[in-house]
Measured scan of single mutants.
Amino acid sequence: HFTSQQLQELEATFQRNRYPDMSTREEIAVWTNLTEARVRVWFKNRRAKWR
């Protein structure tokens, strides 16, 4: 589960860029205190939901 702060950060990034690269995902991981893998999976799932 994600905190509302984490989701806000993830959503804001998603609005700007639906396909963040590795370095962007790592930055998000640092800001949100999540692993890069969790961030990558979140984006994958979010893109699926967005379609």
Rank of each mutant, 00 (worst) to 15 (best):
Val39Ala: 02
Met22Ser: 08
Ala37Glu: 14
Val41Gln: 14
His1Leu: 09
Gln8His: 11
Thr32Arg: 01
Lys49Gly: 08
Asn45Phe: 13
Glu27Lys: 13
Thr3Val: 03
Ser4Gln: 13
Glu27His: 10
Ala12Asp: 10
Arg46Ala: 06
Val41Ser: 12
Gln6Tyr: 02
Tyr19His: 07
Thr13Ala: 15
Gln8Asp: 10
Arg38Tyr: 11
Arg47Ala: 04
Trp42Ala: 00
Arg47Pro: 00
Trp50Phe: 09
Asn33Ser: 08
Leu7Cys: 08
Gln15Ala: 11
Trp50Ile: 08
Gln15Met: 11
Glu9Gln: 15
Arg51Ile: 13
Arg25Thr: 04
Arg46Gly: 02
Arg16Phe: 11
Glu36Leu: 05
Ser4Tyr: 13
Asn33Gly: 15
Arg18Ile: 06
Val39Cys: 00
Ser23Gly: 09
Thr35Phe: 04
Asn33Val: 05
Ser23His: 13
Thr35Ala: 05
His1Lys: 13
Gln5Thr: 11
Met22Cys: 07
Gln15Ile: 09
Arg25Pro: 01
Lys49Arg: 12
Asn45Gly: 07
Phe14Leu: 01
Glu11Leu: 05
Asn33Arg: 07
Gln8Pro: 01
Leu34Trp: 04
Trp42His: 00
Ile28Lys: 01
Phe43Val: 01
Arg51Trp: 14
Thr3Lys: 04
Leu34Tyr: 01
Ala29Val: 01
Pro20Gln: 02
Ala48Pro: 01
Thr32Leu: 15
Val39Glu: 00
Asn17Met: 08
Arg25Gly: 02
Val30Trp: 09
Lys44Ala: 11
Arg40Thr: 06
Phe14Pro: 02
Asn17Val: 09
Ser4Trp: 13
Ala29Thr: 01
Trp42Met: 01
Trp50Val: 07
Thr32Pro: 01
Val30Cys: 09
Glu36Tyr: 03
Val41Gly: 10
Thr3Gly: 03
Asp21Val: 04
Ile28Pro: 00
Pro20Arg: 01
Tyr19Gln: 05
Met22Ala: 11
Glu11His: 04
Asn45His: 13
Arg16Thr: 11
Gln5Pro: 05
Phe43Arg: 00
Thr24Asp: 08
Ala12Phe: 09
Trp50Asn: 06
Thr35Trp: 03
Val41His: 10
Leu10Cys: 00
Lys49His: 12
Thr3Tyr: 05
Phe2Asn: 03
Ala29Leu: 04
Ala37Tyr: 12
Glu11Phe: 03
Ala48Ser: 08
His1Gln: 13
Trp31Ala: 15
Gln5Cys: 10
Arg16Ile: 13
Leu7Gln: 07
Arg25Phe: 07
Leu10Ala: 02
Arg51His: 12
His1Thr: 12
Met22Phe: 13
Pro20Val: 02
Val41Ala: 15
Trp50Ser: 07
Arg40Asn: 09
Glu11Asp: 03
Met22Gly: 06
Glu11Trp: 05
Arg40Cys: 06
Phe14Cys: 05
Thr13Lys: 09
Ala12Trp: 11
Thr32Phe: 11
Asn33Asp: 09
Gln6Leu: 06
His1Tyr: 12
Lys49Asn: 08
Gln15Leu: 12
Val39Trp: 03
Leu10Asn: 00
Tyr19Asn: 07
Thr35Ser: 10
Tyr19Pro: 00
Gln5His: 12
Asn45Tyr: 14
Ser23Phe: 08
Leu7Phe: 06
Arg16Gln: 13
Met22His: 11
Arg18Val: 05
Val30Thr: 12
Ala12His: 09
Glu36Thr: 05
Glu36Cys: 02
Tyr19Ser: 05
Glu9Trp: 15
Leu34Cys: 05
Arg25Lys: 01
Ala37Val: 13
Arg38Phe: 13
Leu10Val: 00
Asn17Glu: 06
Arg38His: 11
Arg38Met: 13
Trp31Phe: 14
Glu27Cys: 10
Gln15Asn: 09
Thr35Ile: 04
Arg16Cys: 09
Thr3Ile: 04
Ser4Ile: 13
His1Asn: 11
Trp42Asn: 01
Ser23Arg: 14
Glu9Tyr: 15
Lys44Val: 10
Glu36Lys: 03
Asn45Val: 10
Arg51Pro: 08
Tyr19Leu: 03
Arg38Ala: 14
Gln5Ser: 11
Asp21Pro: 06
Leu10Pro: 00
Leu10Ser: 01
Asp21Ser: 10
Met22Val: 09
Arg47Ile: 06
Arg25His: 02
Glu11Gln: 02
Phe43Thr: 01
Phe14Lys: 01
Trp42Gln: 03
Tyr19Cys: 11
Ala48Ile: 11
Thr13Ser: 14
Glu9Asn: 09
Ala37Arg: 11
Arg51Cys: 10
Thr24Phe: 08
Lys49Phe: 10
Ser23Asp: 07
Ser23Thr: 12
Arg18Asp: 05
Asn33Met: 07
Glu26Tyr: 11
Phe14Thr: 02
Asp21Thr: 08
Phe43Met: 02
Trp31Gln: 14
Gln5Met: 12
Val39Arg: 00
Ala48Lys: 14
Leu7Tyr: 07
Gln8Trp: 13
Leu10His: 01
Asn17Pro: 01
Arg47Gly: 01
Phe43Asp: 00
Arg25Cys: 01
Arg40Gln: 06
Thr24Asn: 06
Glu27Leu: 15
Arg40Lys: 08
His1Ala: 12
Tyr19Ala: 03
Thr13Ile: 15
Ile28Ser: 00
Ile28Ala: 01
Trp50Ala: 08
Glu27Ser: 10
Trp50Asp: 14
Asn33Tyr: 06
Leu7Gly: 02
Val41Pro: 00
Val41Ile: 13
Asn33Pro: 01
Glu9Pro: 01
Arg47Ser: 02
Trp42Lys: 00
Gln6Ile: 07
His1Ser: 12
Trp50Thr: 06
Arg18Phe: 06
Arg38Gly: 09
Tyr19Thr: 05
Ala12Thr: 08
Asn17Leu: 07
Gln5Asn: 09
Phe43Ile: 01
Thr13Leu: 15
Arg47His: 04
Thr35His: 04
Thr32Val: 09
Ser23Tyr: 10
Phe43Cys: 03
Ala12Leu: 11
Arg47Val: 06
Glu11Gly: 01
Val39Lys: 00
Ala48Val: 10
Gln6Asp: 01
Leu7Lys: 08
His1Met: 10
Thr3Cys: 07
Glu27Pro: 00
Ile28Arg: 01
Trp42Gly: 00
Thr3Ala: 03
Lys44Ser: 09
Val39Ser: 00
Leu34Phe: 02
Thr24Met: 12
Glu27Tyr: 11
Thr3Gln: 04
Glu36Gln: 05
Arg46Lys: 05
Gln5Arg: 11
Glu36Gly: 03
His1Gly: 12
Gln15Ser: 10
Ile28Phe: 01
Arg51Thr: 11
Ala37Phe: 13
Asp21Asn: 10
Arg51Val: 12
Asn33Glu: 08
Arg25Ile: 13
Gln6His: 04
Glu11Asn: 04
His1Val: 11
Glu26Met: 15
Gln6Phe: 08
Gln8Ile: 12
Glu11Lys: 04
Pro20Lys: 03
Ala37Pro: 10
Ser23Cys: 08
Met22Trp: 11
Gln8Ser: 11
Arg40Ser: 07
Gln6Cys: 04
Arg51Ala: 12
Gln8Met: 12
Arg25Ser: 02
Gln15Gly: 07
Thr13Trp: 15
Thr24Ala: 13
Glu11Ile: 05
Glu36Asn: 03
Ser4Val: 13
Leu34Ala: 08
Gln5Tyr: 13
Leu34Ser: 12
Thr24Gln: 14
Met22Gln: 13
Asn45Pro: 00
Lys44Gln: 10
Gln15Tyr: 07
Leu7Arg: 07
Phe14Arg: 01
Asn45Glu: 14
Ser23Lys: 15
Ala48Met: 07
Thr35Pro: 07
Gln8Glu: 13
